[in-house]
Design a protein around this nucleic acid. Sequence first.
DNA 1: AATTTAATGTGTCGTAAGTACATATTTATT
DNA 2: AATAAATATGTACTTACGACACATTAAATT
Lengths: 238, 238
Amino acid sequence: MTEKELRLKTAEIEKISHLDYFNIAISVDCVIFGYDDKELKVLLIKSDLEEFAGLHSLLGDLIRPDEDLESASYRILRDRTGMDDLYLEQVHTFGSLDRHPSGRVITITYYSLIDIKHHKLKLSHNELNWHPVNEIKKMAFDHKLILDTCLARLQEQVMEHPVIFNLLPEKFSLRELQELYQAILGFELDRRNFRKKISIKDWLVDIDEMENDVPHRPGKLYKLKPEFRKKTARKKLV
Amino acid sequence: MTEKELRLKTAEIEKISHLDYFNIAISVDCVIFGYDDKELKVLLIKSDLEEFAGLHSLLGDLIRPDEDLESASYRILRDRTGMDDLYLEQVHTFGSLDRHPSGRVITITYYSLIDIKHHKLKLSHNELNWHPVNEIKKMAFDHKLILDTCLARLQEQVMEHPVIFNLLPEKFSLRELQELYQAILGFELDRRNFRKKISIKDWLVDIDEMENDVPHRPGKLYKLKPEFRKKTARKKLV
DNA sequence: AATTTAATGTGTCGTAAGTACATATTTATT
DNA sequence: AATAAATATGTACTTACGACACATTAAATT
């Protein structure tokens, strides 16, 4: 480093006091996907900020000094859905200077998959609701961008990894599964080709039961093979 | 929320004072890949921490209050390589409580690709050097985990997206390209099948020139079609 | 100048997967 | 008993993948 560079560097360091580096808050935001009524949905809460009156936001919170990222995410999931042990996957970290009106907040985003019907949300006491992903146009903060990013990631993963089953009850028919794929991908699939493709993957077991609550010829029921029940698609490197 | 839950929650909030939330530092770490001598390399610096004496670490720095994540990454790249306009891609954010010995630091990691030969590193004045990725066993902090995660991401992207060309000079032969793929993927490829696969992708133009510095029959030279020169593989959603 | 050496450049065949497409069967409903 | 609606299934065509061999070209050697 030349002397000139050194002087510049020193001035720069003095300008930015050490404490300022800690004047950034860190949050976690969770895109919680569910599936119901043949639609992909996401769990949102009414924003309590004036700037975003009438808009919805993702579920998130500041990270506490004594918890790591996954712990913070699971805390949010537990608080909002009452469920532990959900599928969770980190997607991206957003940190634009102006993304939060009240100061610098960097947020680490995750998506999570949950079987809506199988649990009881605590939907009563606040403005927490499931919203069809396709109908969401505007959100608080940069949350629409986060939602789009997470949906894109989900779409990428869904044909390669057996993650989609976290959105379904334990037993399901091939029709239900196909409808779910279509809801996520946003286009129709050919029924025969879809079945062939799924059968090649060898993810399912035929449990020798039939649907019994449908107003038409019932289909066979299947389960995901237990060895594919993972809580994240990410390879563990440690 | 029951009264009991409410009391617990309140106690919890009191315990963790608001200011503590800002007692977390945020850094960016860059895995800067290069390619030379038929090996994939990564740019590392000797750790200046006593705890990690003799070990190397990635290039990173705390994020300044007035810069966003990409700006911080590009600042690091510019400081360390003298180059702007490099390929850069966010990979993952690491935030274990104990990942940094001197306090809580959450780090957002990126990988970057650079053509080693085409630029002059400021390698002189510090312990900054290229290291063959395969020979790195132990690193400071959790940097080996970060390196492995970034390498895995690079390996995933390399056959799907035209990113690898950021590691090569503008003009290259198919042999050079194949050797680079092999260095990244870690296994050999069949020459004829490789050429077929590349030609299907239609990424390259034959520029009607030949190699002239090889001690054997020279091969044709190719360029990446300009429409594929991107600085990130990530889809822009905004 | 002739020979040797080493890398370039190219094609086929078998297998696996992707796509388009139609009919018989089963159950609930009328 | 007849109808309606969904399930279950197979074939032919095309496209991608993987294994594999030989003629050609230029440099290096003799």
